[in-house]
Design a binder for these strands. Structure first.
Lengths: 159, 159
DNA sequence: ATTGAGATGTTATAACATATCAACCCCCGA
DNA sequence: TCGGGGGTTGATATGTTATAACATCTCAAT
């Protein structure tokens, strides 16, 4: 189990690593990592925070990469579809994937104070969930687990 | 663990039971179960399916109970706030609570074919999730677990 | 060169949600 | 009985998120 997002880390490293992984992933799977898609992923990677489609679009627009909603939605859909980003249902927003490659049904920890998002790849709750759902006969295609609360830092501040 | 929503049951019973529980719950907590709020809960109870705010509003409007968005949102917010209904983030829609009273962080099983929704109160995955989150220092305030897939009936049909 | 799949450009609109402020109602205490 | 306060409702306007629909472009494989 790992969490990325809360706590200190060398974030510039974090960005370049993920961009390289994304490049590699697209090459291997013959996906077109076009300028808009690349830029959108960079924007999501810039912070461990979810960005809305229109927030992304705003930046794209300033940079001359497109100005209409479908531009942003298409790029975001591409990233989500290929596992490079996640949609946070709770926020109607998108965050870069923090664990490229690990097969996952991650849980998202959303701090309501600082907006930071952590991604938790927990085996235990996933297998418990699978077991409980299996007994109902439901066949799972997608899982969203989203927790809202306070991150460690904001918990202290609030106290 | 219980699931309500998939499978046969006497649904009219299901509705009257829940309405009575809701009445009681409001009386006990000195909440005003006004006509609009009552009617909205009935609408949600009518099917084990999530309804959008505007779908609810459409009916309210036909019945002369209000025609502007805030009417529906206020009633829905009231029901959610007091545990009589749940918001399904994935669908931007609302479903009646199927387990009034059980303290819960339920999982929702959403059938993408027939739109039916089941509510799963799983102890095991909740405690596993709590344990895994605890180790991160994150303090949980709200949990949303939403699964999209096929219900038992639709799984068979698809096969 | 042609074709076909994927990607992009563009316009319009659908769908979901909230801010604001005035009016009303009900209960309760003076 | 009066008057105030909290909660509820009515009404208008606006903000935010998402998709439909259709035309065009790009590029690689044939």
């Amino acid at each position: 189990m790992t969490t990325i997002g809360f706590g200190q880390h060398d974030h510039s490293h974090c960005i370049t690593d993920m961009m390289q992984s994304a490049e590699a992933h697209c090459r291997e799977n013959q996906l077109r990592f076009t300028p808009v898609r690349r830029r959108v992923l960079e924007l999501l990677l810039a912070e461990h925070r979810a960005k809305g489609a229109y927030e992304v679009l705003q930046t794209l627009s300033e940079e001359g990469l497109g100005s209409q909603p479908p531009v942003a939605y298409r790029a975001l859909d591409f990233l989500v579809k290929h596992g490079l980003a996640h949609r946070i249902e709770r926020l109607n927003a998108y965050a870069a994937c923090a664990h490229l490659g690990t097969s996952h049904a991650p849980a998202f920890l959303i701090c309501r104070a600082c907006q930071l998002i952590a991604e938790l790849d927990g085996e235990d709750f996933n297998s418990a969930l699978d077991a409980e759902v299996a007994s109902t006969g439901f066949s799972i295609e997608r899982i969203a687990v989203e927790l809202v609360g306070l991150c460690p830092t904001c918990t202290e501040t609030a106290a």
